[in-house]
């Protein structure tokens, strides 16, 4: 029961962070908190069942790997965005990326 409530609170925190955060890295972190809340809800519900339901566990395992790949792509895009453009760095006339 505690964990169901925890999932709800984490969901709200993550959603709020996602909407109001200024820095993009914050938004990525908030998104991860949000997904952790959803995973928690799934597994907490699975625990209520008798016998223990293995299907949500497997789905959450899949979800963790998918969220890591999404986070990695987002982080690389974020770093690329924050870098100075190649054209500005090396002066005009150079070929862009």
């Amino acid at each position: 029961m505690i964990y169901l409530a925890l999932a709800g609170v984490l969901f709200v925190i993550g959603l709020h962070g996602l909407f109001v955060a200024r820095h993009l890295l914050r938004k990525i972190l908030s998104l991860n908190v949000l997904s952790a809340a959803v995973f928690l809800l799934l597994v907490a519900l699975a625990r209520e069942a008798d016998p223990l339901d293995a299907v949500p566990h497997a789905i959450v395992l899949t979800g963790i790997v998918v969220s890591v790949s999404a986070t990695a792509v987002a982080l690389v895009l974020l770093v690329r965005l924050s870098l100075p453009r190649r054209g500005e760095e090396e002066g005009p006339g150079k070929e862009g990326r």
Binding site: V9, F11, V12, E48, D53, A54
Partner: peptide
């Protein structure tokens, strides 16, 4: 939102595929 989520989670049927998996 928290209240609605709690209400929704409360009424969800607990997943019952455990027996089939076993």
């Amino acid at each position: 939102l928290l209240g609605l989520l709690t209400l929704a989670a409360w009424q969800l049927p607990s997943p019952g595929l455990g027996e089939e998996v076993q």
